[in-house]
């Protein structure tokens, strides 16, 4: 059991702690998983860059001792494209919230997936805009309450993973903060994938989403993740009716294909011949 020991070597613990997030927010759990995955893969901290957007998830980059870039709302993937394409030896991790990635950053998301640029995009999905006070997000399930959907959300929500697969991401998976151990493994696989990897993580927001929708405290919301999730394998044998209110977790798509930075080497080769 060495899990607790290594994490601190990756944190800017002398500078920026305690974390800005509310009590029981799952973002810290995901950060822990990312760190353990990076540690497990033995990556050099100097060659890891973390790019984040705006919102609760955006603050993730502040706390971790990599080359960190906290960018503008929704643009994390575009900035990360510059970082990665400019210096391909960097392992690039992109941390975004659900609104950040799927609403304002939706265009960057589908195009990063289409290019299959080698980076790992994390979507911290708490079903709501937490930092700004609980507005409805593209992943708020129908019928749920948000500060801008006081009478219940009537818009259908995105399935980020299906979107990513359709747009061309070469590795797509979903995990939950409750299953942090399997999340470590999923993240390690995602980072190892040479191409655009998407890891959507369901994370509880007890302070805002939980309070609006009377879902209970952090512990209850974590337990709910356990009850509401089924694995990809289990889901395969279930009917659509049974799957209706379930969150499916696991690796959905793992199909490596040519990666942008490597392909550009071919462009350079061709250009030099002409």
């Amino acid at each position: 059991m060495q899990k607790s020991i290594d994490v601190y070597a990756y944190l800017r613990h002398e500078k920026k702690f305690p974390l800005i997030w509310c009590a029981g927010c799952g973002n810290g759990i995901i950060l822990g998983s990312i760190i353990r995955a990076v540690d497990g893969l033995g990556l050099d901290k100097n060659l890891v860059s973390m790019v984040s957007g705006i919102g609760c998830s955006g603050r993730t980059s502040t706390y971790v001792d990599f080359n960190t870039l906290h960018t503008t709302h929704g643009r994390a993937l575009a900035f990360a494209t510059g970082v990665k394409f400019g210096r391909p030896e960097l392992t690039t991790l992109v941390v975004m919230g659900d609104g950040d990635c799927l609403s304002i950053g939706g265009n960057h998301f589908i195009h990063a997936a289409r290019r299959n640029i080698d980076m790992t995009a994390f979507i911290f999905n708490n079903n709501i805009y937490g930092m700004t006070g609980g507005q409805v997000s593209p992943t708020t399930p129908e019928g749920m309450i948000a500060s801008t959907a006081s009478y219940g959300n009537r818009e259908p929500n995105f399935d980020a993973c299906k979107l990513a697969v359709a747009a061309g991401a070469s590795f797509v998976a979903r995990g939950t903060t409750y299953e942090a151990d399997s999340l470590d493994e999923i993240i390690a696989l995602a980072i190892q994938n040479k191409g655009f990897s998407v890891v959507e993580v369901m994370t509880p927001c007890p302070t805002i989403y939980g309070r609006y929708n009377r879902l209970g405290n952090a512990v209850k919301m974590l337990r709910m993740q356990l009850e509401d999730t089924v694995t990809v394998e289990e889901a395969a044998g279930m009917s659509p009716e049974e799957l209706k209110d379930k969150v499916v977790t696991g690796v959905f798509h793992d199909a490596p294909r040519p990666e942008l930075c490597e392909e550009y080497e071919l462009v350079i080769e061709t250009a030099l011949k002409k």
């Binding site: 059991m1 927010c25 810290g28 759990i29």
Partner: peptide, 18 residues
Amino acid sequence: VCGFCITRCPDFALRILE
């Protein structure tokens, strides 16, 4: 020493020392 509490602590506030 299953480590469940450490991995689920969102604030890195918990550490197990052998």
